[in-house]
Design a protein around this nucleic acid. Sequence first.
DNA 1: GTCTATAAATGGATAGAC
DNA 2: GTCTATCCATTTATAGAC
Lengths: 210, 210
Amino acid sequence: MKKEKKDTKQLILDTALELFSKRGYSAVSIRDISGKLGLKESAIYYHFKNKQDIFDVLCQSFENVIYSIPPNFAAEMAKVTKVEKEAFLMVCHSYFTNYLMEERVNQFLRMLIIEHGINEVAAKMYHRMMYDEAVDNQILIFNWLVQLGFLKTDNVERMVMDYHAMVVYLFHRYLICGEITDKVKRTIAEELTKHIDHFLERYGTCKEGK
Amino acid sequence: MKKEKKDTKQLILDTALELFSKRGYSAVSIRDISGKLGLKESAIYYHFKNKQDIFDVLCQSFENVIYSIPPNFAAEMAKVTKVEKEAFLMVCHSYFTNYLMEERVNQFLRMLIIEHGINEVAAKMYHRMMYDEAVDNQILIFNWLVQLGFLKTDNVERMVMDYHAMVVYLFHRYLICGEITDKVKRTIAEELTKHIDHFLERYGTCKEGK
DNA sequence: GTCTATAAATGGATAGAC
DNA sequence: GTCTATCCATTTATAGAC
């Protein structure tokens, strides 16, 4: 049960992530981080070996986030036997609101994008989070939706590409630059809904009134 | 007719762009730039007011690149009266090989992506180059292809989104991280060809053997 | 666990010689 | 147009007091 007042180490990580995600690693000094927390630089060095160590610990802590998503989702999937459009829409939107737009995940992804040119670890994590693993998971899910009879296609991979390309597009266009304002949130929601409608016109099985 | 041996000013810009695009503005020192050119720091200050000035001049020089593309393309378009799939494919691939993958344009875009979080100018240019203007141009071109009878759709904007999302996807996945090796070039070519085939199955008018 | 003080290095920028 | 020399601010990092 170790408990410093309010876990300075975690506060340092949070502050560092916030600043790194805006300005990039090298533009942020230890003073910036400690100053923002009302500490002196030396206090940082009590908790971390050096500046790079903060970055590395941040990356490690997000490894866990990544690995926890697919199993959680698989567990949810197992319970479902029939999927309606409403549920599909909700899950798609939730991927944005609870993951890509979630404050810390969003900050982490911004940081990776800035750093992936000079940092091998950042490059690997960015590609895993944004492409390799995202596509793999989507293939799994869409295959399952095909088996459930909610989607139809003769080429699941192409279908996933169609879907995922738009996700990446919206992410880079709206969620990586500047603040995520309410206006941005509305834009994302509208664009995503339009995209899913379009997607289901092509790959959906339930013919509706629309 | 002013001509320093081989235009040091331009060499500084080239070197700065190369380094900025890899490490980001703040991680590159004046010493890094001058050192790589076999000069002393003070030589840089003869050509530029300060470090920020180098960045600003780089941005200005690319303003011209951006504005020269649509008129050039429009002039080419005016000459054409009939479009075959071969020509369409060629133009799509050329957008990658001669623009997104072209060394300097690619470096500049990488730099913008790194800097757009802290630099207003970078943010504006990135969005213009990658989204606003790219989409506008594509709408123009695809509208023209619809009129020529090469494409058909009841929603040009959606068609453009389908197309452009994949371009942005391929760009961010393959062209913004690490070296653009021959392997990467092949991957891009293959993916793009697959995408265009898929795209024409949906929006093309010429039914072919395939 | 945080502070003061300080070392050591790095980076931006200028003055003036050549 | 480039160099030497130098200045000053910032930054990383450590030692030792509290």
